[in-house]
């Protein structure tokens, strides 16, 4: 039960119910879809990148609480960051949810609430789906990326 509470923390549930930046970005100059065919989770991430920085970011789609909250908190965290910084944050986030991080994600700020995912290996794909879509958007992969 404690593991379950660790996974479904209040912050995560709150973001899944009221996702931030949940909108199509009219000014987007990058976008990509992320799709998990195993569970049907499907998100589109929109980015407005100016001078190497993410000046605005939004997403839409459907998925489980973990994937939606992760997408929502990703958009909050990355707004204003350079693409290089975004890459670094994703790398740390990935280590956190796969249990490879040295600490408990203190340097990730709010995103540290996803540490509980590492106890649920089958849910790592949920937590990282929007992030993979983000990378696809940044590096201009037009085709929907798939977790499988």
């Amino acid at each position: 039960m404690s593991e379950l509470r660790e996974l479904y923390q209040e912050v995560i549930l709150e973001h899944s119910k009221k996702p931030r930046n949940y909108r199509v970005l009219e000014t987007a100059n990058h976008k990509a879809e992320g799709f998990n065919p195993l569970c049907g989770d499907h998100f589109t991430v929109y980015l407005d990148v100016k001078d190497g920085a993410i000046s605005d970011i939004g997403f839409q789609g459907s998925g489980c609480a973990i994937s939606k909250a992760s997408a929502s908190m990703m958009t909050q965290t990355l707004k204003g960051k350079t693409t290089g910084e975004a890459e670094g944050i994703f790398s740390k986030f990935h280590d956190l949810v796969t249990g490879q991080a040295a600490g408990s994600g203190e340097d990730l700020g709010k995103l540290a609430v996803f540490a509980g995912v590492s106890e649920f290996p089958l849910r790592v794909k949920c937590a990282t789906l929007a992030w993979h879509a983000l990378r696809a958007a940044l590096y201009g992969e037009e085709q929907a990326i798939s977790t499988e």
Binding site: D41, G63, A65, I66, C126
Partner: peptide
């Protein structure tokens, strides 16, 4: 209502209950 099947599956599993979730 408002709960994705994937979350249902994880929580039921924590109760020892194996169901399939997905398409």
């Amino acid at each position: 209502d408002d709960i994705h099947p994937h979350d249902i599956g994880t929580i039921l599993d924590s109760e020892g209950i194996a169901v399939r979730t997905g398409h």
